[in-house]
Design a protein around this nucleic acid. Structure first.
Lengths: 128, 128
DNA sequence: CAGCATCCATCTAGATACTG
DNA sequence: CAGTATCTAGATGGATGCTG
């Protein structure tokens, strides 16, 4: 796929690019990152606890870890308000927003093809 | 994101749909699945060993496992030719092809924003 | 409130050896 | 060639307890 974007007709992919793209995708394409991306896109700016409540089933540990990673990758802006009790807000950066848009196609695809996948799986399991 | 596709302006997401979509994405969005998807899209029909050679760094175990999963999900068509030595060929189904197209946006995004991510990470690491 | 530190069960994936 | 089977180191993630 990437080859078609970078080099429309050539075959050899720059393995360095491929490795980097793979690494980036590996990091962003995990469950929690995608879910957080989604809630922040929908709800704008949220506090730590609010993100946790919005992302059903996430543990505090994974919430912290994932938010920190996303901040490190420049997907999320973290703002600390020096008040008591502490108030920390999270929102998507432009980069994060553009990613969530790019992922939109995959979400759409998944939503559209859910039944076909389930059907394929049932058929496969029946066969074997 | 999915909410925008399913319900353009409403907020409440059907948690059942969300769970299913998340599950589907979790299964398809792993490193090896994406790489295999990519090589099969680019090269068409390949034998087991050829896929293994094309996907750099994959172990035989993960190759078998991932191909089997993709077959089960209806992304890949597996054809066994009853000859000696055995000849088994893999190619994308229509479903697999449509997925690889949906993923194209993410690959493009990753390729386009690699440097920005690296820069963000360097800045973050310097800060802390 | 917004975390960090720690312990622990589980899952993953690589290496290795074997087979129709 | 195209797998299967087994073992294991390491990563993952949940639960719990503590702090500025």
């Amino acid at each position: 796929m990437v080859v078609q974007f970078l080099t429309p007709e050539a075959e050899p992919i720059d393995p360095r690019i491929e490795r980097l793209v793979t690494e980036v995708i590996g990091r962003i394409a995990d469950k929690w990152t995608m879910l957080i991306l989604e809630v922040l896109e929908q709800r704008g700016t949220l506090r730590f606890t609010e993100v946790g409540r919005a992302v059903e089933g996430i543990s505090q540990k994974m919430l912290t870890q994932t938010l920190r990673q996303m901040e490190r990758d420049g997907l999320v802006q973290r703002t600390v308000h020096p008040v008591v009790p502490p108030k920390v807000e999270y929102r998507l950066t432009d980069l994060g927003l553009s990613l969530s848009e790019a992922f939109c196609g995959v979400w759409t695809w998944a939503a559209e093809h859910l039944e076909r996948i389930d059907a394929a799986r049932l058929a496969f399991d029946a066969r074997s």
